[in-house]
Design a protein around this nucleic acid. Structure first.
Lengths: 154, 154
DNA sequence: GCAAACTCATTGAGCGCTCAATCATTCCCG
DNA sequence: CGGGAATGATTGAGCGCTCAATGAGTTTGC
């Protein structure tokens, strides 16, 4: 391997570890809360994105993009959500390769049921830990990293 | 459920989603990189924490705390790492309930082998996306959230 | 027009994680 | 002391995810 690696400085290491530990801890909180409702964060996000879409429906590829999911993961997840009656799949009218994922009434109801506890978790675990100004800064920095990631891949 | 939920404001929602998307994307990058080396982020962290400990050994519970892992996860992970020869377990001399996890020479070698590519991933995906000042702010905010989480649980 | 290349989505094997239950040992305190 | 509570760690069932392979449909280029 490349031995000309730029190792992390003390400051970089500190930031990196704080980030890493924080995400692991927060993920646990959010996932645990949603699992009590028979969902998880990925499934919840799928329902949210569908609920926001026109006609509460999206192409699988569009849904994958909006929920930061691989196609494979989305296929597995949607198969499971479909078994539970929260979504259904329809063939895409304009491209027979495609599938359209539709949020059912049961799925919408599940989302309304799960949302309060989840939002409370997000607020208590993350948002309440920062002032409004800090949160704004934090969000901006996350957005900056996201743009960096997009630029890197594109 | 509680209908007096404080839903997220637009600003909160924006920050929350940026955070969520960023972590999913970063996790993918880091995990994928390490999986090419036969590890994953959790396993890598275990090896790192052991490598930093006196005698390259830690009680399971101490290791769990430092790697932000549940005991169950750590047990499974260490069992796997032991199969691969990267760690071994010894009975704790001072508490017969306890186990001490020891990094083997092979484990240390594996860490040295995997580190360059991983550090490069961290740098390219995250650190390079922020200026030094931004990274410092970001790390501080993560630390603030961590203190909040600790206070919440303690 | 048609084959090759590409895209959409799914599938299954394999693995790691969570949750709850369990076992062994140690601590607490009356 | 002694017995119940607490702690340290493991286990197995069940599920979601990744990776690589695959099937089906569409686009491209000659």
């Amino acid at each position: 391997m490349d031995e000309n690696v730029r190792w992390l400085s003390a400051a970089e290491q500190e930031a990196w570890r704080a980030y890493l530990t924080m995400t692991v801890r927060l993920d646990e909180v959010f996932d645990r809360g949603l699992r009590r409702q028979g969902l998880n964060l990925a499934y919840y996000e799928i329902l949210v994105r569908l609920s926001e879409a026109d006609g509460r429906r999206l192409r699988m590829s569009a849904l994958a993009a909006r929920s930061a999911s691989s196609r494979s993961r989305l296929s597995h997840a949607v198969a499971r959500l479909e078994e539970q009656g929260y979504v259904r799949r329809e063939v895409c009218p304009t491209d027979r390769r495609g599938q359209v994922c539709v949020l059912t009434d049961a799925g919408f109801a599940k989302l309304r049921e799960a949302a309060p506890a989840h939002v409370t978790d997000v607020r208590e675990a993350l948002l309440d830990g920062l002032t409004a100004a800090e949160l704004s800064t934090f969000g901006d920095l996350c957005a900056t990293v996201l743009r960096h990631l997009d630029a890197r891949e594109g």
